[in-house]
């Protein structure tokens, strides 16, 4: 009795709690489904038929076709960072450290994270849109009726390719970013070339490169997993494809940033 009275006095509180609970349940359900989707991948990826041609096609799409935007982003990120650190470091007379600071930042964080965000926006969205369109136009049903496992045919090659492509893209980002920083540092900011190189060699280690590459490997897996998952989850025609694509990009980017924190806190201890 008192309960119902309180209920009617504060309906917005109950509605807010109900909405919050529903949202949490929705997210947990989604996470559970993604976990099951990932389990499917680990189950099917080892089983024949092995579709290497599809993996290479996807590597071309995710990797080669992202190179231009990765090079462009890498170059400007490196150049901007060189400027920003130079004027800060000059105040305390350590402007010769611009090279290693930019290179380490790129290697450990910026190259894998920015490459991840770019691939999530480009390839993750494309994966969701392609698979989603196939779903609403019954092309996935057509595969299933032929006796082809649609997950193995569509998702597995994309996830393998995404996992392999992102570390390579991240390394390209790093290389181009360092080149950009070198050009700005030595030609525009007039840091001595020999000092730039020597400091780079002095402060940068293989572990820095390894940390970024490991991160990129996990980001690539997660982005392609999320992209394909939202593709398979598409319902309700063109509107559903749009929604699925949008969710793939948003969740892909969020997951990259969240996973980056956990990977950093783990890798920093072991490397």
């Amino acid at each position: 009795m008192s309960m119902s009275k309180s209920h009617s006095q504060h309906p917005w509180i109950y509605r807010a709690i109900f909405d919050m609970g529903s949202s949490i349940l929705h997210i947990l359900r989604g996470l559970g489904k993604i976990y099951l989707f990932a389990s499917h991948f680990f189950y099917w990826v080892w089983r024949p038929p092995y579709r290497l041609r599809l993996v290479f096609e996807q590597l071309f799409f995710i990797g080669n076709k992202s190179v231009f935007i990765i090079v462009l982003s890498g170059a400007f990120t490196g150049m901007v960072m060189a400027y920003q650190t130079y004027f800060g470091f000059k105040l305390i007379n350590v402007d010769t450290l611009v090279g290693p600071v930019v290179a380490i930042s790129l290697a450990k964080e910026l190259a894998p994270v920015l490459s991840g965000l770019i691939v999530a926006g480009r390839a993750g969205a494309a994966m969701a849109a392609q698979i989603g369109t196939m779903k609403v136009t019954e092309q996935i049903d057509a595969l299933e009726v032929m006796g082809i496992n649609s997950f193995q045919y569509l998702a597995a090659p994309r996830i393998i390719a995404g996992t392999l492509a992102l570390p390579m893209l991240s390394i390209i980002f790093l290389f181009v970013g360092c080149t950009g920083a070198y050009i700005v540092g030595t030609k525009a900011l007039l840091i001595d070339e020999a000092i730039f190189y020597s400091k780079l060699g002095e402060f940068m280690y293989l572990e820095d490169l390894l940390q970024g590459t490991i991160k990129a490997f996990f980001f690539g897996f997660l982005i392609s997993l999320i992209g394909t998952y939202f593709g398979f989850e598409v319902t309700e025609g063109a509107e559903g494809v749009g929604r699925g694509t949008n969710q793939a990009v948003v969740w892909g980017m969020i997951c990259v940033l969240v996973l980056d924190y956990f990977l950093t806190s783990f890798l920093i201890r072991i490397l």
Binding site: T133, M134, T137, E138, Q139, D141, A142, V145
Partner: peptide, 13 residues
């Protein structure tokens, strides 16, 4: 054992 013709053909686009 089945061949299926879908409502909108479902050809691989």
């Amino acid at each position: 054992n089945f061949g299926m013709v879908f409502q909108y053909a479902a050809l691989f686009d």
